[in-house]
Design a protein around this nucleic acid. Sequence first.
RNA 1: GGCCCUAUGGUCAAGCGGUUAAGACACCGCCCUUUCAAGGCGGUAACGGGGGUUCGAAUCCCCCUAGGGUCACCA
Length: 495
Amino acid sequence: MDGKEVAGMEKIRVRFAPSPTGPLHIGGARTALFNWLFARKNNGVMVLRSEDTDLERSSAESERNIVRDLKWLGIDWDEGLEVGGPYAPYRQTERLDLYRQFTERLLAEGKAYYCFCSEEEVEEERQRQLSRGETPHYHGKCRNLSREEQERCLKEGRQAVVRFRVPEGEKVVVEDVVRGRVEFDSDGVGDFVLVKSDGLPTYNYACVIDDYLMKITHVIRGEEHLSNTPRQVLLYQAFGWQPPKFAHISLILAEDRSKMSKRKGDTAVEQYREKGYLPEAVVNFLALLGWSPEGEEEVFFLEELVKQFDLNRVSRAPAVFDMDKLKWLNGHYIKNSSLERITELAVPYLQEAGYLTGELTPEQWNWVKMVVASVREYPTCLAEIIDYVDVFFNDEIEFEQEELKEILQQEQVPRVVEALYEALDQTPELTPETAKKVLRDICKGLKLGGKKVYMPLRIALTGSNHGPELYELIAILGKERVASRINRALAGVGK
RNA sequence: GGCCCUAUGGUCAAGCGGUUAAGACACCGCCCUUUCAAGGCGGUAACGGGGGUUCGAAUCCCCCUAGGGUCACCA
């Protein structure tokens, strides 16, 4: 710290620092979003850093997927993975030399020490303490080893970890932007590990060094890290660094108020993408989980979210993931996005279901667009669209209920059908609009109520008494298929 | 169990000492309508409990209860 920084004047820098040990979790996505919104709102810098110090569980593939899903959501970053930046590298396993330097410093100052206890020993002691009802802490057997003893063990080649010497009897204060002042007692934390026996830093350690070196001003992360924060604050103090401001946002809970898990529904962003949720719906939904806008409007695109976002309006209570609301938002965006885009997104599902095969000609494309237009108000996610399109593809009409056939036997039906065929003959270009007019004219010409005209035709064409707009259906099917379906249906009831 | 966080309708939540306690989703009803939807309008529904402080508490304090987090050589 050069001491010249004036509070509030420094450039805001935030980071999203996932560990690439699996897909991007919905909670992680929200953390990333809040960081991003805060950075963009305040003209700050967003950093993406990979915390890959768990060699066992980290994978390049997970990292790629996380990056892909962040981009999909519309979250970008100014520094970090892929884009680089002044504090590169942004992958912790590539920063090992840096950590080593700071470890030496702590060791030299006696603020950290080598510990030669085996994992088994430590675990045994932990169990003993637990059974006595005590808070399990490192017992400190190696805490008071002299420098010489440490050297000797090291020379013997014994496996060692580096532990932080936690000062005794100190109040550790965390100033949290969303929670206020939170106090901890340093005696509540044992001498935690800084460097693992494989030479890699632990989370609490690497995180502090990186946040410091990368000049992070605000650490916005999940509440599960709140209890880690005193350890980190102690480290900042040991180094004589000014800690960043913390903002711990509450967790997202499953419907039964327990932690979200795979068993209780989809927890990964990619699962929502694959089901045909739109990124703007997911973002909008996530933003509303734990944050609330000032006004009454709740439907926001990313840009509007940026304008509205305020860390002071982040709620402290954990939030239940409300699937119904996500579905509603997604349905809203499906209905209101451009037809071209929704069609593009819907086609893969239609292909997968076998309704479409191969490349689409421009004519087919336009036809599919009409299909999408007539059903897109139904699905809550695009994968569901296949539940509504069968009527356009399958000419083998099955009657949902036999009673519906009775409607086909109503006395006006032959007249209606005749009028329809005649009108269709005189309609060179069949579109939803012209079809609509045809139907209206039939009602007028025959002096029949809509129900008498629409219902038999709908049933003859679809086998059901409900479904998409009839005039759209007629335009989409075309004259030939309309005629053949009606003829077949009427023949089926002996007309 | 220790430590920490949290507590307004079923859910997300506004509220930051004085309000008829917003709004959204879900649910119910009505309207629109050829059907189902969509849309429009309306409705049901909440301050966990107990003590304080105060002229006055959803709002401030304490206790209880409940839920969550965390106590790793995982992050």
